[in-house]
Design a protein around this nucleic acid. Structure first.
Lengths: 365, 365
DNA sequence: TTGAAAGCGCTAACAT
DNA sequence: ATGTTAGCGCTTTCAA
């Protein structure tokens, strides 16, 4: 615990009998220094247990090798995949991941971004509660990649859950459902709006009556109200904004002894941990969240590595394997997904989702 | 994205027509400077959108206002509570949380700790894969708090799952079970060892035959083997190392159409997300993981704040509410849990766990 | 009360 | 190939 004083480069240089600058070079560009001088320095460094000071390096270079993941709520299982996905990629590239929880508050989010500036090289901003303008402004000060938002000029990754929801509706239509409820999410949710916009024409096309219920908080506890409302609306199936809400619906239906799927089919969204554990197992829209995280990290790293000297700290995590390199190359390649060609240049990456059918959906009874 | 140059303290000073040192004082110790000078500086700072450079400050002070949470596997839901608990406390105190995943590897863990040194003020080390000696050595270089480990001289928080498991056994005994299987976890798990050591005398005392199965990986997929083994061993109940394993057991029993709890009662450990969602709902040992996280953070912060000037950065997050202060006070108070009085002085905080009975346990059939 | 100046650990010119 | 020096942004003596 006592935390003894760290040896500095100066100590290493002294021990090796060279100037600090030589020691620095020996450690960072072994090529540009006499081989045995370099050896001496490296030996001295190892001997002393020298670790370069990240702060000093950051101060000088302006780079921190740190990236933040900014989330409205670390609690929400939906974001776990994002934590994992971004974390994996960042670690691979020798970056440190910092986690920031904005507690569902735009104000906290703004403040967080403000403080992050200078502390991190960039941030992945997921499910932001900010306005497009606020995000665009923040992006001027900090390299940003957004997840599940479209901000002109800011790279982003989109999970096309709207598409998955349409698949859900088609699935229900094919089972004979003609009156389907959508238990909508928070009014502030950009995804929710997109889904409703996609569901309505799809319903018309499929000859299904769509009843929009809610809005509901995207949490289990809200599911009871949604279940009751769906039954009251005479729907034979309900599609929930997310799995948490769907879990709550299932619980309520169980409590009311309404048979699922015989009397009411239930569909969720996200395929979070537990969706296949509940009984009946939940039919849901699976989103490649972890991949979205990886892609977001890739996009960010591409930006960051773009304006940067070539070589690496010898101390940095091993670079990605050569055979993974091709994978990384995919990141900046935004053109092979010509979808939602929006108002602006760099279109976000759109990741398709797909319906996973389990036992909570069945033919209309 | 363009990331324009940040204004520095020098810019602020120039704008306010004072020296940098005055600007610095005005911003950090408003008391020690003329009131309207201070106002001018603050105004200039706000005007320019000045944000102090964390790196520069860290370089000078040696403090980064950053704390790492080091985990073997961010994927494991058990750790989510830890992420939340530590994160909440750290944020409250104006610290940034960084997340480090060691991928279940002692080597990666060691390397991570090495790199963290200097980047962070301290770390919470959970479920470490390192030897006691390695941890103690690391603690010499970095303020450390361990979770679920006892390292002499290093503060720690222990979740007494062994105690919870004994409760589980008592519960089963009271239901008439006389032959109970324990599906054990990884051999490297310190907790697992503790549990077996606690279960054996308890079984003897209760007149229950204990069959230790495994070791199993603490994941769902391993549950099938555990379920089969438990049935084969003629047990009427099985206690699993953790909930993930228990989920797998339930799935397998469902697939084999073995009625739960009629033919086999099942108990998990941790009460992770989903334990009350599965059917039958899982009886399990609830651990106050989130509280453990908070306590670990508290212990660490107590250390860190201990050797530090009094006052706060005006930019720092609001200090904890006064009414929460009493809560914080509890942290350093290691004396009211006189348990496992180990080989050394500062005993770790021991958090009790308790059994939550749900429908996966019932009277022996 | 305020300013000048030193220096945290490191890297990158520049000089040798 | 190596050493010398300046300076990143900030805080903190020390003087004024």
């Amino acid at each position: 615990m006592a935390v003894r004083r760290q040896p500095t480069l100066r100590d290493v240089a002294a021990a090796a009998g060279v100037a600090v600058s030589t020691a620095s070079r020996a450690l960072t560009r072994p090529g540009r220094v006499n081989a045995d001088t370099a050896d001496r320095v490296v030996a001295a460094a190892k001997e002393l247990g020298y670790i370069p000071s990240a702060s000093a390096r950051a101060l000088l270079s302006g780079r921190t090798a740190t990236v933040a993941l900014v989330l409205p709520d670390v609690t929400n299982p939906f974001f776990f995949g994002l934590v994992r996905g971004t974390g994996a990629r960042l670690r691979e590239s020798g970056y440190v991941q910092v986690l920031a929880d904005t507690e569902e508050s735009a104000e906290v989010e703004l403040d967080t971004l403000r403080k992050l500036r200078g502390q991190v090289d960039g941030a992945v901003l997921a499910a932001s509660r900010l306005s497009d303008e606020q995000i665009a402004a923040a992006a001027a000060d900090l390299a940003l990649v957004v997840v599940n938002r479209t901000i002109p000029g800011t790279p982003g990754v989109l999970l096309d859950t709207a598409g998955g929801m349409v698949q859900a509706l088609e699935h229900l239509a094919s089972l004979g459902h003609r009156r389907v409820a959508y238990a909508s999410g928070p009014v502030t949710s950009w995804s929710d709006r997109r889904r409703r916009e996609a569901l309505e024409p799809a319903a018309a096309r499929l000859g299904v009556e769509l009843v929009v219920l809610g809005p509901y908080a995207p949490v289990r506890q809200a599911g009871a109200a949604a279940a009751d409302a769906a039954l009251d609306a005479g729907a034979t199936a309900v599609v929930a904004f997310n799995d948490l809400l769907a879990f709550g619906v299932l619980e309520r239906l169980d409590a009311r002894e309404v048979p699922v799927p015989e009397r009411l089919s239930v569909i969720g969204c996200d395929d979070i941990f537990g969706a296949d554990l509940v009984r009946p197992a939940l039919t849901t829209v699976e989103s490649p969240v972890e991949e979205a995280g990886r892609m977001a990290a890739d996009l960010l790293l591409a930006r960051l590595e773009g304006n940067r000297p070539a070589d690496d700290d010898p101390d940095a995590a091993p670079a990605a394997d050569p055979d993974e390199a091709s994978d990384l190359d995919r990141a900046p390649d935004l053109d092979d997904e010509p979808v939602t060609r929006g108002r602006d240049a760099a279109d976000p990456v759109l990741l398709p989702t797909h319906l996973v059918v389990r036992s909570s959906t069945g033919p209309v009874g």
